[in-house]
């Protein structure tokens, strides 16, 4: 079952493997969930449905695998799926390049006032240009929260391109190798106080929810920039709005929000030291193909009894 649109490269891969593919793009969420037991596999996008324990328990008799078209699995109760023997696969690498490039675009959009000056120029305000003095990134400190695939890409690119000094925060021992261009720290306070640009690349888990809040904004440099392309609730959005209002940081760029879709009157949308994109950091022609193909391949592997490359709960294959 494919409840929301994916590119044909993925659909074709499933069909070529001899699977019957049912697309339910126009069916409402409730209808989709009612039918779960009838399917061996579901290939889902984060935005369409959530698979928490009440959905999974007793309603997924035939279901063997949930393929997530994306990196985050916060819409799925993975523990419950494991308990029920349902494999969960995601596509953690598919969007890494796109998100890293988006992050860089957002950083420079902020430091060089690109979004603001574009608006001013179009409105006939060319002559006000002297007001929009940017800053160079060269030699500045970039802080990466979460040295995973995306964080590491952003860090190495910015070090290579602009000779930035890159720090990366992780509370414990990271599961990825940290590239040589980045210095690992577990000192949160020092990290927040020191960095000129802070970019979030960690998953949304209980420990990261509200991780950047009032305290952090007070500690940040007044001329610091904050970028969030990870998950909205990692930042306390209300505290961010207040901090931006009071000049506790210079600006912020957000691709994700506490609530999605965000309210039309979200105060962030009125601020001119802010850049907002609609959860599109991952969205490129290349990523859509990689995600569809990777998640389809994962489903095929599970249904063939093979262990897929990007398994979230490898325990289901043990025993």
């Amino acid at each position: 079952m494919i409840p929301s649109y994916i590119v044909e490269e993925g659909v074709n891969l499933l069909k070529d493997a001899g699977l019957e593919v049912v697309t339910l793009f126009d069916e409402p969420k409730e209808k989709v969930l009612e039918q779960l037991s009838d399917y061996d596999a579901i290939l889902t996008r984060l935005t369409k449905i959530t698979l928490y324990s009440d959905t999974l328990e007793g309603k997924t008799d035939g279901l063997k695998v949930v393929g997530v078209h994306g990196a985050g699995v916060d819409n799925i109760d993975v523990d419950k799926a494991t308990e029920l023997g349902i494999a969960v696969i995601s596509t953690p690498e598919a969007n890494a390049e796109a998100v890293a490039e988006h992050t860089i675009g957002l950083i420079i959009a902020l430091t060089k006032h690109i979004v603001k000056t574009d608006k001013v120029t179009r409105a006939g305000g060319y002559e006000d240009r002297d007001q929009f003095v940017g800053v160079n990134l060269e030699g500045k400190k970039l802080g990466i929260v979460g040295p995973g695939g995306i964080g590491s890409r952003v860090g190495t690119k910015m070090a290579k391109a602009f000779d930035m000094e890159v720090l990366t925060y992780h509370p414990g021992e990271p599961s990825h190798t940290v590239p040589s261009e980045m210095t690992l720290t577990n000192n949160w306070e020092g990290f927040i106080k020191e960095c000129d640009v802070i970019s979030l690349h960690c998953p949304l888990i209980p420990q990261t929810e509200g991780m950047v809040g009032k305290e952090e904004f007070r500690m940040m440099k007044d001329d610091a920039y904050l970028i969030n392309v990870a998950r909205g609730p990692i930042i306390d959005e209300k505290a961010l709005i207040e901090a931006l209002d009071q000049g506790e940081l210079a600006g912020a760029a957000l691709d994700v929000y506490e609530e999605e879709p965000p309210a039309d009157d979200n105060p962030l949308f009125e601020m001119d030291n802010v850049v907002v994109t609609p959860h599109t950091a991952w969205l490129t022609k290349e990523t859509r193909i990689k995600m569809a193909v990777d998640s389809a391949q994962g489903i095929i592997d599970v249904l063939n009894g093979d262990q897929p490359e990007y398994i979230v709960n490898p325990e289901v294959f043990e025993g």
């Binding site: 860089i104 675009g105 957002l106 420079i108 959009a109 690109i114 979004v115 990134l137 599109t280 950091a281």
Partner: peptide, 19 residues
Amino acid sequence: VEHTFGLMSNLSKRILEAD
């Protein structure tokens, strides 16, 4: 150089349209 890099990545990711 930084501005050029910024313009390229903002164009390719359609950041201003999306904003």
